[in-house]
Design a binder for these strands. Structure first.
Lengths: 333, 333
DNA sequence: CCGACGCGTGTAATCGATTACCTGACCCGC
DNA sequence: GCGGGTCAGGTAATCGATTACACGCGTCGG
């Protein structure tokens, strides 16, 4: 593979000149032509590794995703990758699989690779490396999930409007006994969603008693299914269930079907995160859609601000309700 | 961030000694202790960029995925990432979104970054950069999709046994008019699946006439839906449909539902790629499952062989049939 | 007519590691 | 007692780029 010295020799100039031509400084037309010709003939491409060493910028971002198999995060990762690439950055993706150990492992190797900045949707609440990275001055932006004790801007969706709308939607359809399946205790976004929903229901005079709030042991379908089992076994089972994550919603759906109950006639089901296949379920699931693409883009922009040394605020983007048929009303799709 | 010189000073030795201690060569116990102590006190971690420049190995692999939003590829990417990390490599993932241009774009930046090896599940058939990379001597392994004219080992699944079993399954259930929704013309794996299926059906005296083979314009749900529409409009509509990709299957399912037809009583549906949510559909979909994890691992192993300069053969792993309820028989889940 | 200035370009230091080569200490055997 | 072998560890070259600084040449003003 040709290097800058080969190009310099071929063009009859010094390496400095080649570098300057390629980085758009000084040289005059005639020299410039010769250099570009040599570059083309040799198929020269600057070595990003050498450049990174010298300039102390790798033009690479790190993204640690709590669970890449969760389609919401897949979409988010895809959005981040596209925006990063558009702005000239590569992305190294690490999947934590909801494990703090793997997450720390990833952060460590990313720091070793001198990424310019780090995006993390943290698994669990505490992460030693995350704090270390922040303290070490690596530009850091949290994604979707806040982490107590880590001072970094957080980019995520906020459900007030959507949950208010959802409460109204359910009230209008005559649902009086809502229930919520939340993420394991301590997950900040889950708790927030719960409280917003509770407040929105209260405005319609609908209560959300503790026995109709179930915390799933994990963020996977099986956890959601377990909680749904408990809810349906109540003396007064709920007539509408909100799951604060798409995978838990899927497990909840399985339990409803396994009991031979019908959605929405026996119980309504709503999920957070509008992933593509919700529209293909029977019935299509009503969902609170997070603006995935916008979140990914905002995260990259915020991180670039931090990389360039500027302050950057947290970003809260509104989620919106996508009514389908799982609450009872006929909708457009 | 501390560098090797800081460590050397603190330990009172030369940088060479530090490097030797950290790479497990010569130094004797006492010096060794001092160096390790200094490393610990300073929290020193070798700069992967500098090391890569010197050793000409980045310990990074590149993965270009044809469509990261397709859950089959998400799983595959996840498997590749895990295995790569287990073996000490980081992974830069690029999503081509089924576009040859984006794919070339990604390959180009990956080569610039001097990745040690490249894994590609190619979008489309031809790719200038792919050929260029192969010619330039970058270790290359194809994943899931062969590319004519590119000399590189290919790791993928092979459906003979599964499709033979499927043909028997359908025959036993009395299905006589099968149809196939294939990927756009020229996608090697799609055509192969079609021919294997045709042969397997023939063994049961079942024909697969041209009018019951439809090529989708793309690998997305809408394409599958269009083909399904055509198939169901035939004078003699099929009583069983195989889609050679999970997203096309999803679109096909939508069309069946939109017409108020029932699966499996009106038409059976089988998909290639067993993705997690097939089990959560109603009815759960019978699928040809590719050994995703094993494919990812084999791909990494094959690539490492190539990186170490050894020859490596292509790998064909058998897919297997996962019968659920979408063909009519009651199954375990 | 000469010095200052500017412009284009070359020389060489630099980023942070690895490693070939050399040095010096020590030990051993003859 | 001395030559040679062994081994720890230091010196410096190197990877491929960027860039501060220096230099030479041309131009222009006083």
């Amino acid at each position: 593979m040709a290097n800058i010295k080969d190009v310099a020799e071929r063009a009859g100039v010094s390496v400095a000149t080649v570098s300057r031509v390629l980085n758009g400084r000084s040289p005059v037309a005639e020299t410039r032509e010769r250099v570009l010709a040599a570059v083309a003939e040799l198929g020269y491409r600057p070595d990003a590794v050498a450049r990174a060493l010298r300039t102390a910028r790798t033009r690479t971002l790190g993204l640690v995703i709590s669970d890449l198999r969760n389609p919401f995060f897949t979409e988010l990762a895809d959005a981040v990758e596209q925006e990063a690439r558009r702005l000239g950055y590569s992305l190294i993706i690490g999947n934590a699989g909801e494990s703090t150990r793997q997450q720390d492992d990833h952060i460590r190797t990313l720091l070793d690779r001198r990424i310019d900045g780090l995006l993390v949707s943290s698994a669990g609440t505490g992460s030693a490396m995350l704090r270390e990275a922040a303290d070490a001055g690596t530009p850091l932006v949290l994604l979707d999930r806040t982490v107590p004790g880590v001072a970094a801007p957080c980019v995520r969706a906020e459900g007030r409007a959507a949950l208010t709308e959802l409460a109204a939607h359910l009230a209008a359809l005559g649902r009086r006994r809502p229930a919520v399946i939340v993420a394991p205790a301590g997950t900040p976004v889950g708790d927030e969603r719960l409280e917003l929903f509770r407040a929105a229901l209260a405005a319609h005079g609908i209560a959300l008693p503790p026995e109709r709030v179930g915390a799933s042991p994990d963020l996977r379908p099986e956890g959601g299914r377990q909680v749904m089992r408990r809810l349906l076994d109540l003396a007064e089972p709920p007539d509408a269930v909100l799951a604060t994550d798409n995978l838990m919603a899927l497990g909840a759906l399985d339990e409803v079907r396994a009991r031979g109950l019908r959605i929405p006639s026996d119980v309504a089901l709503v999920a957070f995160d509008d992933v593509a296949w919700f529209a293909h379920l029977d019935p299509p699931l009503t969902a609170v859609a997070q603006p995935t693409r916008a979140l990914g883009e905002a995260a990259v922009h915020t991180l670039l601000e931090r990389i360039e040394g500027r302050e950057a605020p947290s970003v809260l983007l509104p989620a919106r309700l996508v009514p389908r048929r799982s609450c009872g009303e006929a909708a457009t799709d």
